[in-house]
Nucleic acid binder design. Structure first.
Lengths: 219, 219, 219, 219
DNA sequence: TATGAATGAGCTTTCATTCAT
DNA sequence: TATGAATGAAAGCTCATTCAT
């Protein structure tokens, strides 16, 4: 009793099962170490069916990357309210980000660890998504700088570097939160806000850290 | 005549040639995609010699990780003067870090991208090094907090999270600096100091960022 | 409306569609390289239907060979008038042969190239047809020999060899005519008559070619 | 006792063994049906060694074609004395041809049946050889026509068609001789000379066969 | 110290064929 | 009559690893 062995399912269902199995396997083993045999077995189908529907290992991996990237971006997007001030938007976005990565560790591993590790054509796929997020963060920093009436604006490359730093910190904390028992998405987000926002605000108000300025800055 | 094809070199020299070839190949192709054939050819020796000296692909990769980790830690260490204030130490450490990663892109790829991607036993190796750096940063933050007479100290887990964020930001900026023409190690370090130090200082003085700012901001 | 996608056709029609597709695919790709998928798609039906009607790839190929062999023999037969002298019959048969192979290049490829290449049980099928044609030619040669009052008759094995030579020459010329633009069936037939008939006649009158001509020629 | 299992042979020797096994297997089974496993086993080595030395199935097959084509052309060439009259040269060439095909049935099968059946890039390889032989025969026919003081010369395309016919007849007779017990190379060559030379001579002297001319011609 | 010769095991991919409707 | 869903079996190819010298 129960669906001991589900058979003759419609194609769309089978494809989802295969993609789920593929994300899990790729995320845990890596692209090269994952075998199509293992993916097929985990999906509960034969290997030829995987090829019939998903064409090749490379295409399958690419599909996984695209699906997970889309899901992650959608999760972050839906967590953010565009009208709010920049720090509130960032806060909401980070919470959505850490929540999603915590709930989809294999998908996150595919995007963050595997796709970027295995060169073309995969790195390109995931870079597109990362750039989208970097651009979002860049926009927030720029908006905040304008709100702060900072004039002249920060140079583009500075903003770009800051966004890279923020996104990198987020990626690192996602791994930390997933690997450290008891760290919630909210806590990770708070840590990152604490870490980053004061620095960003100082910059926006034209008070960069400087090697020799340290004593004066403390006054 | 002439050392067109050098032969019968002492073991230590041969091992270095092999390790160099291995780091380059692993860094560019990845652990699984790199073949022992390619490494042996790049090293200019026969495959059995690689096995004679380095025993197996797994051990060879582990040796690469250890060598590159040691080199990176040494580079950062040698850039820091223990007596200085915490932010100066951090500034010096970051400069050394970005300089080293820029000068050793393959070694950095092995540590950052490949080793962490391919599970045990490699992740353990590189985690040991990462933890060492995190501990160094943690120490700096703690020292700074004590200098700031902040009491009670930040909880350990907070400090740990902050260190993870800082290291992640550094890793991300290392990639950004390596991939963006014209970004120097010094600039990457300055970006990260600007990004992080103010936030860290605020925390040390017990002034965390908090979401309540939103109400005021809306007025 | 309109028979855009014809469905539920009578069996005989469907079978012809499948055989047409199979002959085309086998002729162009070869027996092994042709896939049942491709044949089914070209025929506009699903694969199970092909199996329902034609049972297996092997049987399908055999059916193709038989259909094409029958068609070729019928074409040659219908071109010949039994009452005429032997050379006129041969002339008519060759014209019919070259006309048919030019009009059915895929069918001819199946018979000449593919069937004989892929061993049992296919070679047997096509050999039966080839033997039928050889027998026809053998009969003509024998009849001509009797007309010429040549006695004793040529030994059977000699006649058989001559027929083999003639058929081989015809096969070669069929390829030549198909591949050389502007060569008509009539021209190919004339070339072969010119090439062969004088030799055959000489043999029938007991005047074989002999190597001894060489001494005289050197004078 | 005896070389039960020969091991560690030099590369050149192993390569010959592999090529021999490949020619045999390809000749008997066909390109697609022959498996690398079978070839390796027949050669007495493991599959990876075949790949190490011969690179791929396609390259292996191409190598076989080239080796056999070179051998066949060399055999025919070495059988012919350039100074002799055309019919003597043809006679010698045919004897060499039938002798070689009888002694190398698998090589002949590779050239005649398999290579031409399996499309590009194989057909091109063997066509180059066939064209070389056709050119040789074409040269002989042309030379004979000039010896016969025939003026004006036969049109090029006629000569070309005749050569195709002669070569096709030879190919067919090679198969016949190989498959019919007791037919010697000399006998096959004689059959073909008898079949072809009278027709060729008539043509060279301007006496083609013509459909209506048959009665007059017999006078 | 150093290498040419060799392989077991495993991978991705394809294909003829069948099941259930 | 007709097909979407599914697979067992095998093929080409690669790779880490070892043997014999």
């Amino acid at each position: 009793m129960g669906a001991v062995k589900s058979k003759r399912l419609p194609r769309a269902v089978r494809e989802q099962q295969m993609m789920d199995a593929a994300v899990q396997t790729f995320g845990q083993r890596g692209y090269r170490a994952a075998s199509m045999d293992e993916i097929a077995e985990l999906a509960g189908v034969s290997k030829p069916l995987v090829y019939l529907y998903l064409n090749s290992k490379e295409e399958l991996f690419t599909s996984c990357i695209q699906r997970e990237a889309k899901a992650l971006v959608a999760a972050v997007r839906s967590g953010v309210e565009p009208g709010l001030p920049a720090d509130r938007q960032l806060w909401a976005g980070l919470r959505a980000f850490f929540t999603h990565t915590a709930e989809n560790p294999d998908g996150w591993a595919v995007l963050h660890r595997q796709a970027r590790t295995h060169g073309e054509p995969f790195a390109t796929e995931v870079m597109a998504m990362r750039d989208e997020i970097v651009a979002f963060v860049t926009g927030l920093i720029g908006a905040a700088a304008r709100e702060a009436h900072h004039d002249p604006a920060l140079p583009d490359r500075d903003v770009s570097g800051l966004a890279q730093a923020l996104v990198g910190a987020a990626e690192s904390l996602a791994g930390w939160a997933n690997d450290t028992p008891g760290v919630s998405a909210k806590e990770a987000a708070a840590t990152l806000m604490n870490f980053s926002w004061a620095g960003l605000e100082n910059l926006m108000h034209g008070r960069p850290w400087a090697p020799r300025a340290q004593v004066a800055a403390r006054v």
